[in-house]
Design a protein around this nucleic acid. Structure first.
Lengths: 245, 245
DNA sequence: TCTTACTCCTTACGGCATAAGCTATTCTTT
DNA sequence: AAAGAATAGCTTATGCCGTAAGGAGTAAGA
């Protein structure tokens, strides 16, 4: 399932995202035993380990030695928690980008790609509408800084699609392997055998698909990513070149 | 949340996908009151209306005048049901593709894009490993038939990423609008106002993001899609042209 | 006719997010 | 110092979910 982001109470969420909640102000009542950041880190740890499906308020609370309900003092709902996790996981993402725009865009894409692979659950958070958190905003801003001034929206959209799509393919392959305990080879072998029995005319009906063996998925997917990126940047260079190259 | 596909009992799932279950054979016991296809259509109707989150076995059963448990006679688990829905929704998708490869790829992409928008929940089904159903396989095969023989894997991967990514953006915008009852304009206006209050220095910190207003999202996202597609195809033509053009 | 295989129901279980309400804690005001 | 107010974080409860278990009825084969 997909968790839709950015649909909670906007004011509360934005305030949490940008941490505009009065920090130094003295407040009554018992000292808070937790902080939003501690919760975020626990939640991210849970999600890294068990995916977004394993992310329950109970699980996060347990990791902090609290009950699920204790979290609701800090975070209005699970939705907002995920929004916060999402933005938090985009912190300190983009390194200094090298000179030429093409190299810079490549570096940016690889950094984002890598981050997605480190936190695969990020790919399961669908931003129905942008979360508008500071860290994600920074990621976008850095890209805009280096992008040539041609077809900006199309390029941004395509880059995000490409990076997310490729990362998804890789992450899901890995996740499936981990979940089921069967490697890609084993899984594929088992399926081939079954398909041979069940659909003996497969190769006739789908000759081209049959001719495209899976190889090592992980590697193939990575190559497909850089290959696709190159295609896209070629296309962009093509349009740009006539102006400022 | 994301539903992971292709992880149930492979034999049962594949048999259901390819309908190799003995159809004409006489079976004992009461006549089945349902068929897998009827369940699929009901389930797809539910998902179209309420998304994958609203898809519960109870809801599907109710639509058919049955209980949730009645479905388990036909479908082993909800997971496999979703696999079957996924493949079913890819039926009769690709029209006859026009002559030139570039036009053919464009037509293919648009058809897939459109299908995703008709059944947005498709985008929430992540194929950890391919479902390997007949209809999805046909979609892939048709693309392979027209694709030039260059960087095939990268191109296929990129095209799927681009189509899915763009469709996701559009679908989620629409979904959010429907869910929250606020239009894009209203939503954006509200956020802008809040951001102005909470983060008054936004425009200084993120000048380029601030300069990229949201416009009409739906339209912008569609243009970004065709624009990205053109970039990609330019890149591909660049590599192909030297050979067979 | 009796057995067997099958459909489809009711019931039940454990897990989920979270609403409601309670208690204990700590600051502010008197 | 005492009283009041606001807050943290607990327990409990509600209504969802997927689905396991088991039972009742039905139709084909022996």
């Amino acid at each position: 399932m997909v968790v839709y982001a950015g649909q909670g109470d906007p004011e509360r969420t934005l305030a949490l995202l940008w941490r505009t909640t009065g920090e130094g102000v003295k407040r009554r009542g018992p000292k808070p035993a937790l902080t939003v950041d501690a919760i975020l880190e626990a939640a991210i740890a849970v999600a890294d380990e068990s995916g977004l499906d394993g992310l329950s308020m109970r699980a996060v609370g347990e990791r902090l030695g609290k009950t699920a309900m204790a979290l609701y003092t800090y975070v209005p709902t699970k939705r907002e928690l995920i929004d916060l996790m999402y933005d938090h996981a985009h912190a300190d993402l983009i390194p200094d980008l090298p000179g030429g725009w093409r190299q810079a865009v490549e570096t940016w894409s690889l950094a984002l790609h890598e981050r997605y692979l480190r936190h695969p659950w990020l790919l399961q958070v669908s931003h129905a509408r942008p979360v508008l958190g500071p860290h994600e905003q920074t990621v976008l801003e850095k890209l805009l800084e280096v992008l040539p001034d041609v077809a900006v929206r199309a390029t941004v959209n395509s880059l995000f699609s490409l990076v997310r799509g490729s990362a998804r393919t890789i992450a899901e392959g890995q996740g499936a392997a981990a979940d089921t305990g069967t490697s890609d080879q084993e899984w594929w072998a088992a399926r081939s055998r079954l398909m041979n029995d069940l659909v003996p005319d497969f190769a006739e009906r789908f000759p081209r698909s049959a001719n495209m063996p899976p190889a090592e998925w992980d590697k193939a997917a990575r190559e497909a990513f850089t290959g696709g990126l190159n295609l896209l940047l070629d296309g962009l260079e093509n349009q740009t070149g006539r102006r400022d190259h």
